[in-house]
Design a protein around this nucleic acid. Sequence first.
DNA 1: TGTCACTGTTACTTTTGGTAACTGTATGAC
DNA 2: GTCATACAGTTACCAAAAGTAACAGTGACA
Lengths: 117, 117
Amino acid sequence: MDENLPTITEKCGKKILSVHDAMDILNGRWKITIVAALFLNKMRFTDLLREINGISGKMLSRELKDLEINQLITRTVLNTQPIGVEYELTEYGLTLEKVLKALSEWGVDHRKRITGR
Amino acid sequence: MDENLPTITEKCGKKILSVHDAMDILNGRWKITIVAALFLNKMRFTDLLREINGISGKMLSRELKDLEINQLITRTVLNTQPIGVEYELTEYGLTLEKVLKALSEWGVDHRKRITGR
DNA sequence: TGTCACTGTTACTTTTGGTAACTGTATGAC
DNA sequence: GTCATACAGTTACCAAAAGTAACAGTGACA
């Protein structure tokens, strides 16, 4: 009755692995939300602080660094006064579109569910 | 030049919010991976420990409780010896299919990218 | 009687996240 | 000139979450 159980890991375990890989890049409480914000528009530091409810400057700064290291976003210093820094999704970052879309749709449905549809 | 910036929040901020809502439920490092595992099959505690690389009993136990509270999975005690407990996605848990599919696909591509395509 | 499998829990440490105050530069108001 | 403001962060300190390892309780089996 149990003889075929090991094959679950062998055959389909890759899915678990790949999901975990994805979450390794998108770890922490804010990365996915930041990427979601940048899907709307490229934004500057303070724009992101405003758009993302609850995030602090420290966390935003740290998460943006991580996302840049992982090549999901670019950081461009503008020659404005005072200095502005613009964050934008890279082409690679844009490949997260389906993930973000799915999450957003599920989030909307979930909100309906918990607020009593 | 800045007059239209506030509308970003007003018009599209809901997407950011809904993504953040979704991540509030799927928070922590393991929940999404656990759900991914349960998409393959209903499983028992030790099965999950085996399938999910790196998780500890403590975290698995805790995350399963959270997922059960949020009605994404059910917990069924089997009358086997020694006692077995089976975890299974609820219908609501199954609504995460698109999210998991998107994450899995992105994870596969990402792995190709970092292991040198 | 001792060991094993299963499903957890507990105590302890490490890592991560949150808060609030601060840095440094430039700009316009007074 | 000096004061307050905006931008893009950083720092020091504290709280919460996650990781590790050892243990608990039950019954089967040798």
